[in-house]
């Protein structure tokens, strides 16, 4: 109920007309022509996709590595569960606070700059650390890697250890076991994690606003700005486009990997 009706409302309103004071019910395509015809939109989408690609790459590599270590390098069952909990608990605490906590770390007079200055590695504080694209990507990776670790860990735990032993007995090196046994078998988990990371990054607006200090744009931020200006139909048209883009990306992921047997 709270999902379907709002989505219908979104699509309906995206065809409404509007002027500076009110929304006029009707059926016009101007919202879509405005959205698709503006170079700002295209640049914003490109920027968002660039963020998504970067974040996806980092979270995949880090998430896979962490899940691998938890599954295959930690031998005691209890330690494994404790470490897994340690890695998932931040997910249940406030994202806002976790973003804010980067500020004293990255700021001009933050910990990192102070430390680098003191060791003499740099002579000027690094400006690009906070309120930049770097900060945005860092915050995303910080927030979303857990969404990759959990499904991949879940899939890896189900890998039959005998397969690995068989590979080792067959003379496979560590690298061969990893690339030819473990990675293919972890694909469903990687796919689920990727879906989470992609949708979260594509739809985000708070992280971008906070961590870029208003210097970078994302589609979500663009939508929320249009809402602030009460341009609801324009925001809706944008939202529908975003939804289609995200669904296409998910469809692409699902084409590559079949996750159904995971559920």
């Amino acid at each position: 109920m709270f999902l379907l009706l709002p989505m219908v409302a979104l699509v309906v309103v995206s065809f409404f007309d509007y002027d500076s004071v009110q929304i006029i019910p009707g059926f016009v395509l101007t919202n879509y022509t405005d959205v698709l015809g503006s170079s700002v939109t295209w640049r914003t989408y490109l920027n968002t996709i660039r963020f998504t690609a970067l974040v996806w790459a980092f979270t995949t590599v880090i998430g896979f590595a962490v899940a691998y270590i938890l599954t295959f390098e930690i031998r005691s069952r209890t330690t494994q569960m404790v470490l897994f909990l340690v890695c998932t608990i931040p997910f249940l605490t406030s994202n806002m606070i976790r973003m804010i906590s980067w500020i004293p770390f990255l700021g001009r007079e933050g910990l990192l700059n102070t430390a680098l200055l003191r060791t003499g590695l740099i002579h000027q504080p690094l400006e690009f650390l906070l309120f930049s694209d770097f900060a945005v990507v860092l915050a995303y990776v910080h927030l979303f890697t857990l969404f990759m670790v959990t499904p991949v860990f879940n899939t890896m735990m189900r890998i039959d250890r005998r397969l690995i032993e068989a590979a080792v007995d067959g003379g496979a090196s560590w690298w061969q076991v990893l690339s030819q046994v473990i990675i293919p078998l972890s694909k469903p988990g990687l796919a689920i994690g990727s879906i989470f990371v992609v949708t979260l990054t594509m739809g985000d607006f708070v992280t971008v606003r906070l961590m870029s200090g208003g210097q970078s744009a994302s589609v979500g931020l663009m939508i929320s700005n249009q809402i602030a200006l009460l341009q609801y139909p324009a925001a809706c048209a944008n939202a529908v486009v975003l939804l289609l883009v995200v669904l296409l990306m998910i469809a692409a992921i699902l084409r590559i990997v079949d996750i159904r047997k995971e559920l």
Binding site: L5, F205, L243
Partner: peptide, 24 residues
């Protein structure tokens, strides 16, 4: 399917949609 869809729809769209529905 609906359950899973609900997870992957970007959050701001849910916000906007519900807000609009109440508005309408």
């Amino acid at each position: 399917t609906l359950t899973v869809t609900s997870l992957i729809i970007p959050s701001i769209l849910v916000s906007l949609g519900v807000g609009l529905l109440y508005n309408l």
